[in-house]
Amino acid sequence: MDLITPEVGLFFWQTVVFLVLIFIMAKFAWKPILGAVKEREDSINNALASAEEARKEMQNLQADNEKLLQEARVERDAILKEAREIKEKVINDAATEAQLKANKIVAQAQVTIENEKNAAMAEIKNQVATLSLQIAEKVVREELSSKEKQHKLVETMLEDVTLN
């Protein structure tokens, strides 16, 4: 018997054994293997579906985050604008109040200066009047120091009275 030439009997028995082996495999091993493959396929499909859902959810979250970020920017800009307006109003109010106070102080100073001026003028008038009286008194004493000067003064005054 030659190993290279196949015999019909050997070929028959190998075919029978092969068919029995396929039958046993189909009966006992094929279903569990196909079940495991099917289960693995379902598991992979579920994982892919979950990944897709997670990706979509991540996109939604990113969109929501972007929207919230945009809203926060708008709100921040509004708050900054309001703060600038308040700052300008406070500065303007302070400047106006300072100007009013300055005007009031100037007006009070002018009144005080006018009062001081009037008081000084009155004092000067009093001093001039006092000096004038003192000078007149000295002049009158000098003129009335003798009888002859007294008569002359009386006559001059009488002439003035009669003329008016």
Score class of each variant (00 low, 15 high):
M157E: 08
K147R: 13
N45S: 14
K101I: 04
N126M: 09
K152Y: 12
A129D: 13
L34W: 13
V17L: 10
G35C: 05
E41L: 14
N60C: 03
L69H: 11
A120Y: 01
M157A: 13
N65P: 00
L21S: 11
L48Q: 09
L19G: 01
E159C: 02
R73V: 04
R40G: 08
L68P: 00
Q70M: 06
V37Y: 14
A98D: 06
L10R: 11
P6G: 07
L69Q: 14
R40L: 08
E155C: 02
V161C: 06
G35R: 14
A109M: 01
R84A: 14
T130K: 15
K125I: 09
I105S: 04
D160Y: 08
M1V: 08
N115T: 01
V8E: 07
A102N: 07
Q59R: 13
E82D: 15
V128F: 08
E155A: 13
E82P: 00
N103G: 07
N92T: 10
S145N: 13
D42V: 11
K87C: 02
F12I: 14
T130Q: 14
M121A: 12
V154A: 12
A47Y: 11
V20K: 03
E137M: 06
W30D: 07
M1S: 11
L34S: 13
K149H: 10
T130Y: 08
N65G: 04
A120P: 00
I113M: 00
D160V: 02
R76W: 12
M157L: 15
S132R: 07
V90D: 06
P6A: 09
K101T: 09
Q134M: 06
